[in-house]
Each structure stands twice: as C-alpha cells, then as structure tokens.
Simulated assay, not measured.
Amino acid sequence: MSTRIDARFAATASEGRAALVTFVMAGDPDHATALKILQALPGAGADVIELGMPFTDPMADGPAIQAAGLRALKGGETLTSTLDLVRAFRAGDDATPLILMGYYNPIYVYGVERFLADAKAAGVDGMIVVDLPPEEDEELCLPALSAGLAFVRLATPTTDDVRLPAVLRNTSGFVYYVSIAGVTGSATPDFDVVAGAVKRIKRHTPLPVAVGFGVKTAQHAAAIARSADAVVVGSALVDAVRGSLDADGRATEKTVSAVTDLVSALAAGVRSARVAA
C-alpha cells in the first residue's frame, strides 16, 4: 500500500530533486500560531513535515529545539493537543506527509495502543522516536508498523556497517542520517563526508535517505541535496520563531512569515541543486 511518504518521495524523485523536510515544534510559541505555521509550510515549499512532540528532557536536541519545547509546554501543549494540531492540519491538506518526532516517555504515558490508534486517525503518517534503539522494537516500532504508521530510524556517523543492518531492519518511510555527531543545530556538516555516508547507507537499503542536523541556510540545503534524497531543517526554523517573538515571548505578526520566508529560501536552495547537477 502506497503511503503519503512514498508518494511524496516518488514525486520529488520524478522532478529530479531532493525533498525538503521541515521540523517545527507543536505548540510553539502557542497552539494557534503553531497551527498557522503548520498550515503555511507546504505552500512555502515544505515537502514533508516533522512535528515535534514537546518533552521536558529532549536529550538529542540542542538549545534551540529544547527552548521551543519548553515554550510549547509552558503554553499548555500536550500530546493530545498535538494530535489536535495534526487533525486541524489534515482538514485542509490530505497530501503532505506528516511525521511526529520526539521521545518515548509521553507516548508510553499516553498508552502505546491508544496513541497509535489516535495518531493514525488524526492523519499522522509516521514517527521518529529518538530514544528507542532497534533492540526495543517490540515497544513501539513493530506496533506502529502494524498500525500502518512508518517508523523512521536515525543513522549517525558512528553507525558502522556492522550496526547498520540492525538499524535498518524495521525502518520504513525513509532513513534519517544525522550528519554530525552531537545534538541538533550544533555545527555545520562536512558535505563531502555526508555524501559518502549517504552512498554507504544506500548500499544497504532502497529507502530514501534524508540528511539533517546543522542545515541552516539555502546554501547548506543545496549542498546536501546534491547527494541525499531529502534535506531536513529544524533548529534554523525554531530559531526563526524565537527571533520573531515579542519581549514577553509571545507571537507577533511576523512569526509565521519568519518561518515561511526561511522555508521558501531553503526550498529554492534544494530545488537549485538537482537542476544544476
């Protein structure tokens, strides 16, 4: 059965370009503004959306995404309201793939079976849960696959050829290659090294390979897009949200456009890469 994720990657491949995957935090800086941002992303050039599930202890996230999660939690965002966001987004967009990204604890507290059923009904296409290794696939990965949700795995610079098959075994949708060793938004990747890593992963899987962490500009996006099937941008977008807020941390009339202007620039960078290649 073809999914929204499969269809979108097939479409971008047929256009001869990489996809742009954008990460934003649910409920940042507040629920209503987060929905406006979400609704505006496809029109700005986002091909796939990752929606962060706010959590109090996001160990893989750098300062920008940590702060976004804290803003969302302070505003009252919950896993239930995050699924409400997805539902509201789906009311106007039935084509753009949407993936929830976060940590296992809130899902565990919500109840795995209930969460998977509610996420599927809301219109979620898949999930990335960064603190569940392949050895824990029975906790969430396998139930998610049974529920018809993709389970996207992370591969990192330290994932060698011995470890890679275990990482890829139950992966679906796409593979997310973390381009740097460290937390999100912490450094700029070495694009030649990334290209080599993408080639290596592709020898092990037919799935699309998306590359993220450290991608901040249209130039970065274009450089990644020359070798990867998708470019993931997150910290730069949540930084754009933060930079648009007033002195009290509230949304302004510039908040949505701060994100969409950057997405448009990144999308242009991604689209330029394959045309020139």
Score class of each variant (00 low, 15 high):
Tyr176Asn: 01
Leu237Arg: 07
Ala225Gln: 06
Arg8Ala: 08
Arg163Thr: 09
Pro157Ile: 11
Gly102Asn: 07
Ala277Asn: 12
Thr252Trp: 14
Arg17Lys: 13
Thr33Ile: 10
Val109Cys: 00
Ser227Gly: 13
Arg169Gln: 12
Val178Leu: 05
Tyr176His: 06
Leu73Lys: 13
Ala67Pro: 01
Arg271Asp: 04
Gly173Val: 04
Ala268His: 11
Thr255Val: 11
Ala197Ser: 14
Arg274Ser: 13
Ile180Glu: 00
Ala7Ile: 08
Lys36Val: 00
Asp248Trp: 10
Gly27Lys: 08
Phe174His: 08
Ala60Glu: 04
Val241Asn: 07
Gly27Trp: 11
Arg163Glu: 10
Leu207Asn: 00
Thr171Gln: 02
Phe55Tyr: 14
Ala195Asp: 09
Pro189Phe: 10
Asp192His: 14
Ala7Arg: 15
Leu38Met: 09
Ala34Gly: 13
Ala230Val: 07
Phe174Leu: 04
Val209Asp: 05
Ala258Val: 06
Ile5Lys: 00
Gly182Arg: 09
Ala121Ile: 08
Leu142Pro: 00
Arg90Gln: 09
Arg8Asp: 00
Ala225His: 12
Leu154Glu: 00
Met53Ile: 15
Tyr104Asp: 00
Val21Glu: 09
Thr260Pro: 03
Pro42Gly: 01
Ala144Gly: 03
Thr205His: 04
Gln66Met: 13
Ala210Asp: 05
Ala240Leu: 11
Val162Leu: 13
Arg163Trp: 12
Lys74Gln: 15
Asp261Asn: 14
Asn170Thr: 10
Gly123Met: 04
Ala32Phe: 08
Ala122Val: 02
Phe9Met: 03
Ala258Met: 03
Pro206Asp: 13
Val193Thr: 13
Glu113Pro: 04
Ala230Pro: 03
Val256Cys: 01
Asp246Pro: 04
Phe151Trp: 13
Phe151Tyr: 15
Phe174Ser: 01
Ile49Thr: 00
Ile107Thr: 01
Ala91Gln: 14
Gln219Asn: 09
Val175Asn: 01
Val124Met: 06
Pro133His: 04
Arg200Cys: 11
Ala258Ile: 09
Tyr177Cys: 02
Leu79Tyr: 07
Pro157Gln: 10
Arg71Ile: 12
Ala210Asn: 10
His31Gly: 10
Leu262Ala: 01
Gly76Lys: 14
Pro58Cys: 08
Cys141Thr: 08
Ala18Arg: 07
Pro106Asn: 04
Val167Ser: 08
Leu85His: 12
Leu168Phe: 07
Leu140Thr: 01
Lys254His: 15
Ala60Pro: 06
Val86Gly: 06
Gly76Cys: 11
Ala40Lys: 05
